[in-house]
Simulated assay, not measured.
Amino acid sequence: MSAQYTHGHHDSVLRSHSWRTAQNSCAYLLSSLTPTMHILDVGCGPGTITASLARLVPLGHVTGIERSAADVLQNARAHAAAQGVTNITYALDDVLALGFPDASFDVVHAHQVLQHLPDPILALKEMLRVAKPGGIVAARNTDFAAMTWFPESEGISLWHKTHQQVVRSNGGEPDAGRRMLSWALAAGVPKAQITATASAWCYSTPAEIAWWASTWEERVLSSEFATSALERGFATQADLDTMSRGWKTWGAQPDAWFGHLLGEIVCRKV
Rank of each mutant, 00 (worst) to 15 (best):
Q237P: 03
T36D: 09
A22L: 05
E218K: 11
V85G: 03
I49G: 13
G134A: 09
F234W: 08
K125A: 12
W149I: 03
S31P: 01
I209H: 12
A91N: 02
D93C: 06
T249H: 15
R232P: 00
R77D: 03
L92G: 03
A196L: 07
Y90C: 06
T89M: 11
T89P: 03
T50N: 13
Q4Y: 10
L73W: 11
P254H: 11
K161C: 02
G177I: 08
A192Q: 15
F144E: 13
P120D: 15
W216G: 00
T142K: 12
Q164D: 07
S153L: 11
V85A: 10
C26H: 01
E208W: 06
Q74F: 05
D255L: 06
T6N: 15
H160V: 04
G47V: 07
I65F: 03
D255T: 10
S104C: 05
P254F: 12
H163Q: 11
V113R: 02
V266A: 07
G43P: 08
A210N: 06
Q4E: 12
A81I: 04
T48I: 01
W212Q: 08
H61T: 01
D11Y: 06
Y5N: 12
V167P: 10
S104F: 07
H109Y: 15
L92W: 04
T205G: 02
A187R: 02
T50S: 14
Q165F: 10
E231R: 13
V189P: 00
A252S: 10
R140D: 02
L59K: 08
K161A: 07
I265C: 04
A196N: 15
Q253H: 14
V270I: 10
S18H: 08
I156S: 08
E264Y: 00
K132Q: 05
D11L: 02
T36W: 12
W216M: 05
F144A: 05
V137R: 00
A145W: 07
F225T: 03
K125C: 14
A81H: 14
D94I: 01
A145I: 04
A198S: 09
V167S: 15
S223Q: 07
R219Q: 12
H260L: 05
L221N: 04
A138C: 11
P254S: 12
K269M: 09
S244L: 11
T197L: 07
D239Q: 10
G84R: 14
P118G: 15
Y203N: 04
S244F: 03
H61L: 08
P46Q: 09
Y90T: 02
H61W: 11
K269T: 03
P120R: 09
D143E: 01
L122Y: 06
A81D: 12
T227Q: 15
Y203H: 10
L117D: 09
F144T: 06
L53F: 08
A138D: 02
